[in-house]
Each structure stands twice: as C-alpha cells, then as structure tokens.
Design a protein around this nucleic acid. Structure first.
Length: 914
RNA sequence: GGGUGAUUAGCUCAGCUGGUUUAGAGCACCUGCCUUACAAGCAGGGGGUCAUAGGUUCGAAUCCUAUAUUACCCA
C-alpha cells in the first residue's frame, strides 16, 4: 500500500482517539503500581476551549502519558466547575430573553432552568479536550455541583463552623451591583482609569463666611456624609476641628473631626467621611462612633435616604449633581487625575463598597499552614520564583478573611438556619447543620423550646462561593469525604498544572484544605508516608498573549479559534506549537497573525506549522522505509559496515538523549524536552542515520538493517508519544503488524543502557568533515554528485578515527568521495580545512582561486590569534593558576594547545599557497 | 504608592550551580538545489558590545548595586 506524500491528521486523529477509548487505556483503578494522579483544573461548565486551556491541558497530557509509558498507574481526573456567578448571569440573561424574570419564578424553578441549560450546553469543553488528545479518565468526570461534591462542601462548612473557623459578620464588602452579590476581594480587578476630583465647599454652621474644601471623586455620595476629617497636625485646619459644617445641597449638619489617617498632601487635606460607601471611611466612622447612612440600592441607584436625585443610577447622579453643586456655589473646581477603580471580575461592573452581613472563613491559621507547606518544600513550585508572589499574599498582615457567601442561587446553599421570628442581624441565633432536621434539633436544644418545627426555621438564602467547592477538588473527586478507599491510593496528586492568575483563588486554598482535611479522611500511616499536601508540585503556566502582548480573551477577540487551529494543523501540530515556546511561568506570545484589513485574528501560526511539518517529516521517514526493497542476503561489504556504525551510533545517541530527557522531565522543562526529541528525530535519525543506511539507488536494503531501523523508529515513537500522541500511534502501527494490545500509547518507555561516548565523538567528527566538504563544494560550485578525493594529515587521532570500522565508508557516502587516505606530506593544489585539530586536504578539479583561499585562511588565522591570546592572558595570570580549580586550568591549557595546533596548521596551509 | 519578574540575533525564546559559550535554537533572511522519503524538503551561509553604568571575582550573559525601559501582582 502506498502512502500519501503528506501526513493527513484529520484521518488518523479521530480514529486513534476512539480506539484508545474503546481499549479503555485512560481508565485507572487502584492497583499495586505507583499512582500518578493529576486532577484537571476544572474549566467553567459554560466554557469553550481557548488557548490557555490548550496549553495547560497539553502539558498535563504530556506528563500523564509519560507516566503511563513509564509504568505508573496514571489517573487524570477531568471535570467542570459550576462557576456560580458566570453561569447564573448567563442563565438569567437567557431567561430574560424569553421574558422570564428570575425573581418571579423562584429559586426551585430557576435551578431547574439552570440545570436544564447545563445539561444541554455544559461540558462542550470536555469534548473539545478530546480533540486535543487529552488522555483523561472520562469515567471519572466530575462536576463541582453534583451531589457527592456538594455534600463535601456542606460537610466542610459545618466542620469549620464547629471548629469556630467560619463566622457570620457585618462588614464592609465588595458589592457587584450588576450580579447583585458580594464578591471576595480576589474577585475585584483594579484598573487604572481617568477620574475627576471634585473640590467642594462645606460651609461652617456657626459662620457662613467660613468653609472647608474637600476633594472627592464621588460627589453623588455627599448625602451620605457624616463628618469631615482633617489631620490633627494640619495647621490650616486647627480652628475647624470640633466645629460643624453643612453638607451642600441638603444642609445637614456634620462635625469636623481630627484623624491621623488623613493624608495632608492629598487633595485639600480635608476628607469627607462616608462610612456606608467607602471601606476606609467605614473604619474611621467606627473609631469615632459616627452613624452610617446608606444612600444606595443594591443595584447602584440612589435611595430615598439621599433625599435628592432619588432613583438615579450612581453615574447618572454624579453627572447631575455637578450642575446642582455649581448652582449652589459649592463647587470650587474639578481636577483630572488617574486612579484605579475596582471592577467585578465576572461582570466588569464597578464594585460598590457595601456594608452587609456575610459569611467568612478565618484565614489566619490556614495561611500559616499553606505558607509553610511551600516554604518547607513539601509542595514545590515551578518556576520557584512564584513563591515570592505566594508569600506576599499569605503573609499575616496581608491575608484577609475569605467572604464565602454569594447572593445567588446557582451553587451550594449555605447550611445555616434561623428562627423566622428573629430579625435578620448579626446577633440572631444561627443553627449550622448538614440538614434542616439536624438544624431543628439544635434549635430545640439551644432555645429550650421543644415545640419548634421545621416551619419555624428558614434557611439562609445565599450560596457559597464557587471556590469554596473547588478548593476541595483533589479531595472530593475521589469521594474522599464518603469513602477512604480511593483517596488513600490516589492522594496526594502528583502535580497541578495551572495559570498563576488563580494562585490565590485556587492553588493556595487547595493547599489549605488539603492539610486541613486529608488527615481526617486518610489513614494516619498513609499520611505520614505520603504527606497531607494535595499535590507535590505546581507547574505554573504563563498567560497566553497575542503578538501585542495582550492577554488572549474572548472579549478582545484576539484569540485564534482553538478548534480551527486543530483543523488547520492537526492536534499534534497545535500541541507542538503551543508548547514549543512555553517555559514554565513565562508568558507565551502566541504568534497568530492578524488580518491587516479587518484586524481580526487569523487561525494561523508559524509554530503550529512547524509542528505540522514535523509530523510530515516523520511520515516521510516512514515512507522511505516502506519504499525499500528488502534482501535476505547478508553481505559483509562497506554498506554493511556503515549500517553497523550507524546502528550503534544512533543507539548511543538515543541513550544519551534519554538521560537528558529524564532530567528535563524531572524539572518540568517540557518545551526543552520537546526540542530535544525534535532534534534527535530530525537531525540524528532523519538527516544522518537514515542517510547513512540508505541503499544506493535501485539497490535493496538488507533485512537486518531494516529491522534495526524499524526498532529505532519504534523507540523514537514511544519517546515522542507524550508530546504528539496521534502521529506516533499511527506510525507505530504502520511500522509493523501489531498484536492485540500492542499500542504506542501503552508501550514501554526505554530504559537507559551503557552507551559508547567515543563513538558519538567519532561521528561528530564525521559530521564536521562532511559539513566542511559540502561548504567547499558550495563555495567552488562543485556539484554534489561529483566524487572528490580527501586526504587527512596523519596523526594518532586521525589514524584511529579512520580505522574505526565503517567511518571511511560512511565519510565517502556522506561527503561523496571516491577516496580517503592518510598522508604525511602536504598535498599541493588542494583546499585545506581543519577538522578538530587536524588538517584535511580536499582535491578539487577546478583551479583554486589562490587569493580567495588566502583571504579565507587569514580570516581564520586572525580568529585563532585572538583566541590564543585571550587564553594565554588567562593562563599567565598567576591568580588564575592559583585560585581556579585544577580541572578548569587544565581545560584552559588544553584549549591553548588545541588552538596552537590549529593555528600552526593554518599557517602552514597559508605558506603553501605562497 | 508597595512588591515581583523581564530586558540575549529582525521576531519568539533557551542558556539551570560563575569556568569547552569571544553565546545556542526555531522562525525570518541570503546563496545553491524540484537529488530517487519529504520544496510542509535538502545543502550551506550571514547576523548578537548579552538594556546602560558601576561593583564583586583570577574569571560575569550568569552574582551585587543603581538607572532606564517593560510586564505583572498587591492596595
């Protein structure tokens, strides 16, 4: 059967993925082998595959496939995250389009809609991962809101509450007026923006001629002012302290207080205190026992407490109040300035500080554990430098309690019940339990009222933050909270692969929950033996950016379509492209070009093209092997000697590379590992090995040589498999007839054996001489086919080299020579070049341009002169000789000696030219 | 405002513990080849004061300090 001249990924990729699934190769069950566990960072259930997923899942797949080939019990658990805010927003929007309001249909009906929507559209991303080749154990697919995982969330909530680590409190929170929920601090994204600073006059109540000017960027909140604060040492305002002023427009009287918090240099040095609408003002207000006046509705409109502009949106009110202030003579001036403004991560709405009653996790003890885990090296970060960022966040003075309640319905409802009779406030009685029945028992006990029934209780309306379920992911995907069997085997996971942007959201919190709960779920002996950490290593990928260094995102439209890329280059090609410039932690500039006319991103990539070309190279190597005619007759001729040499050499090179690869895998230098394999295959195997064993035109190849070649090719396919699974599986099967279950995906990663380093050096010289001869041909316009004669200067080295079996024949073949011989004499009318330290003379039939030759030699001589003098300088420095280690000094001496030999040779050649 | 990285060829990046590195790779570029597996290819080539200025050292792309540029994190 003849093969197409080009590799066709479309034809093979689906075929092999289905085959692997059919064979159940990705499924794992606990057994006696060492486990290699990876849990996927669960993408949003509503998500579609983007470049970041491609990168991060390619890396995970490489690690998992490599582990599988290395004989470990590889288990990669996939799944999705319910993503409460994002999903709820999506469903709300969808319902609105159908004319349905969330509030009208109620909680249960809404959840029905949401689940229906999730069943229909959720999890598309998991199918897309299959296109990429992800070898997940799909039988283990989990969802953060499925019953078992939700159960774990409730368990943990109750557990932490009982330990006194979860509390309910009235605090200043970050409010998203669009999603109508509080956010955790981490969900607020600060952006630098242009803003205006309004300078407003507040007149004294005791003297209408005196006023104090304050600077604010939020004039629409002055109706909520409760004081003006100045610095106690500010000389300008000493006479104002203790007096009162009128709030402009509404003429409410407020005091002027002194507080060292005020920055004398900022604005006018006088600060309006608005506790309901500013975090810092709230703190000052509390300190000075000032009242709180909240003038905003949940959706960011002014309420009746504002008394003016009631019903207007905060930004509309800001515009309108400017006019009123001007008319009232209260506006002194407006300044432009830059400031950073907090936006909601999910809805991008400007967040509003808001006083509200929420649930919090006390983070101090957790932070200490999490910091220690990485500091001690139990959890390793790649790259290590990520620890700095981690540390600064977890330090005691930086860590803040985690607000975990959200005013949403899509998520796990908070397992807390209250008495219907009590007013909702900080002091009301609360019964935290996994079920309403348990809560009722508590209520009866605590109130001493046995007649209470379920009807007297009401459950907290809120749900927990999505991250409060995903922080349990490594524990809950193995149902650790229900059954210790699987988790005892699979925990801790090996490595977590994720972007550094969710280091705080997710990584740190998983470390916290891991240390907190795994000792409760797993046998103490096992924990002692394997550790309590959720993963042994974290591989932080960079952010994928476009060629203008912007983060690739759907909203910017600067990300190529991941699936279109796979269509264009094949999954293997895209995997190659995405990985090849992705060192851990460094951001990746993905090279997809933009259409110069439309400015739309094109689904093209040079790097993926390189990956596709590599597949094609492999494919053609296969075609070469298949095209040869085979002979059973073994001849002990030159070709045989070359084949033997090539065979042993490639074997040595593979072994040498395997050692390097192991090191690269151990340190997670995967892009380097890929380049290493790429070079081994393209340069060593294709360019040298196959060219060496290639029979002359029309000649057959010896059966044994072909078998050796196939064996090497097969080994190389196993080595490349983790990176490019599809093409390697295809070639693996094309190479020979395979028995049932004899597949590349489950082949055995080669073990390193002793190899001949000297042979590698000898072939390096062969390559060097060949390249030199080819260069001379190029320079003298001698055809590649024209056979030439080469002489080598006689020396111990050349003598030994040329007499290694196969070298002479190989050299004749690669350099197209008719004769190679050793000589003591200078050979006239030849081009001289250096190979190693020795001189080579190439006889060419064209007349040598003596002047050109001289120029070339003089240039080289100059180079060595400089080189030698720099080494001599170093060596003549006594301090160097005394303080440098002996082997370094010896190396320098060797460098000098070699340089001198080379220089001598070149000088002789120059003299010879006359 | 506080902090952390980055700066190496036209572009994207390697270079790990200072010493076979007067610095590597891929792409792009130049020259010659449709040679019988592959033009998605082959053979060869050019191109870098390692951001700048100091310092430590026998020795610095590598360590230290400052400056510049740039990216990000935190408030």
């Amino acid at each position: 059967m003849s093969l197409s001249a080009r590799y066709q990924p479309q034809e093979t990729e689906t075929k092999w993925y289905d085959y692997w699934l059919k064979k159940n190769y990705f499924h794992s069950e606990p057994d006696e082998r060492e486990p290699f566990t990876v849990v996927i960072p669960p993408p949003n259930v509503t998500g579609v595959l983007h470049m970041g997923h491609m990168l991060n899942n390619t890396i995970q797949d490489i690690l998992v496939r490599k582990a599988r080939l290395s004989g470990k019990n590889a288990c990669w658990v996939p799944g999705t995250d319910h993503a409460s805010i994002a999903t709820e927003a999506k469903v709300v929007r969808l319902l609105r389009e159908q004319g349905i309001k969330k509030g009208d249909i109620g909680r249960d009906a809404f959840l029905e809609h949401a689940f229906a929507w999730k069943d229909k559209y959720g999890g598309i991303i998991l199918d897309q991962l299959k296109r990429l080749g992800a070898s997940c154990d799909w039988e283990r697919t989990r969802f953060t809101m499925e019953p078992s995982l939700s159960d774990a969330v409730l368990h943990v909530f109750v557990n932490l509450y009982e330990k006194g680590r979860i509390y309910r409190g009235l605090r200043m929170t970050q409010w998203d007026p669009e999603a109508l929920t509080v956010l955790s601090n981490e969900e607020v994204i600060y952006k630098e923006e242009n803003a205006r600073l309004f300078h407003l006059k507040y007149y004294r109540t005791d003297n209408p001629d005196l006023f104090i000017t304050i600077a604010t960027q939020r004039p629409e909140t002055i109706m909520a002012d409760v004081a003006i604060a100045v610095h106690p040492q500010d000389e300008r305002y000493q006479s104002f302290i203790g007096k009162t002023v009128f709030v402009p427009l509404i003429h409410r009287e407020i005091p002027i207080i002194a507080d060292a918090y005020v920055d004398i240099a900022f604005g006018t040095g006088a600060l309006k205190i608005t506790p309901a609408h500013d975090q810092n003002d709230y703190e000052i207000g509390k300190k000075h026992k000032l009242p709180v006046i909240d003038i905003l509705t949940p959706n960011g409109k002014l309420n009746e407490k504002a008394t003016i502009l009631v019903g207007q949106d905060r930004f509309e009110a800001r515009k309108n109040i400017k006019k009123l202030l001007e008319e009232a003579g209260a506006l002194e001036k407006i300044e432009d300035y830059r400031t950073s403004i907090g936006h909601s991560e999910r809805t991008d709405a400007v967040v509003e500080p808001r006083l509200s009653l929420q649930w919090y996790v006390d983070m101090k003890p957790f932070a200490k554990t999490a910091l220690e885990a990485v500091k001690s090296g139990e959890v390793k970060f790649y790259p290590e430098s990520m620890f700095n960022m981690y540390q600064s966040w977890l330090q005691e003075d930086n860590i803040r309690d985690w607000c975990i309640s959200r005013q949403l319905w899509w998520g796990q409802r908070i397992p807390a019940w209250f008495l219907k009779t009590e007013v909702e406030d900080e002091n009301q009685q609360v019964f935290v339990a996994k079920t309403a029945e348990d809560a009722l028992k508590q209520a009866i006990e605590k109130t001493g009222n046995p007649s209470l029934t379920l009807a007297d209780l009401k459950q907290d309306e809120d749900v927990v933050d999505t991250w409060f379920s995903s922080w349990l992911w490594p524990l809950s995907v193995f149902d650790g909270f229900k059954d210790p069997k699987e988790i005892a085997y699979y925990y801790p996971t090996q490595v977590l692969v994720t972007g550094w942007d969710i280091m705080f959201f997710w990584v740190a919190r998983m470390i916290m929950s891991g240390y907190e709960f795994s000792p409760e779920l797993i046998d103490a002996v096992k924990i002692k033996e394997k550790g309590a950490m959720p993963f042994k290593a974290v591989y932080y990928t960079g952010m994928v950016r476009d060629n203008k260094r912007r983060k690739m995102s759907k909203s910017l439209g600067n990300s190529p379509d991941a699936l279109a890329l796979i269509d264009n280059y094949g999954a293997d090609g895209v995997r190659f492209g995405v990985l090849s410039s992705a060192a851990a932690g460094n951001d990746i500039i993905f090279d997809a070009p933009f259409d110069p006319k439309t400015q739309e991103v094109l689904n093209e990539s040079k790097l993926c093209e390189q990956g596709r070309n590599f597949c094609n190279k492999l494919w053609n190597a296969l075609r070469l092997l298949q095209g040869w005619e085979v002979t059973e007759i073994e001849k002990n001729d030159g070709d045989h000697a070359i084949a033997e040499l090539a065979n042993q050499w490639l074997d040595a090179r593979i072994n040498q590379t395997l050692v390097l690869l192991q090191d690269q895998f151990n340190s997670y230098r995967l892009s380097e590992a890929l380049i290493t394999v790429y070079k081994l295959i393209w340069d060593d195997f294709c360019s040298w090995y196959l060219e060496l064993i290639k029979p002359a035109y029309g000649e057959p190849i010896q059966k044994k040589v072909l078998e050796q070649a196939i064996a090497h090719f097969e080994k190389l396919m196993t080595i490349l498999h983790p990176f490019m699974p599809f093409v390697t599986e295809e070639i693996w099967h094309q190479l020979k007839q395979r028995a049932e279950g004899e597949d590349c995906v489950v082949s055995i990663w080669p073990t390193v054996t002793e190899y001949d380093k000297l042979l590698i050096a000898d072939v390096d010289l062969l390559k060097l001489v060949t390249t030199s001869v080819r260069e001379i041909r190029n320079n003298h316009q001698i055809k590649m086919k024209e056979e030439l004669t080469l002489y080598l200067q006689q020396s111990n080295l050349t003598n030994q080299w040329l007499h290694r079996k196969g070298i002479k024949e190989a050299l004749c073949k690669t350099s197209v020579l008719n004769e190679v011989s050793l000589t003591d004499a200078e050979i006239p009318n030849t081009v001289t070049f250096l190979g190693g330290n020795d001189k080579f003379y190439l006889v060419i039939n064209t007349t040598i341009n003596v002047e050109e030759e001289k120029v070339r030699l003089v240039k080289e001589i100059e180079y060595y002169h400089k080189f030698i003098s720099s080494v001599e300088n170093k060596l003549s420095n006594e301090k160097f000789a005394n303080s440098a280690p002996a082997d370094i000094v010896n190396k320098e001496r060797q460098k000098l000696a070699d340089g001198q030999t080379k220089l001598k040779g070149l000088m002789e050649a120059l003299t010879k030219l006359g």
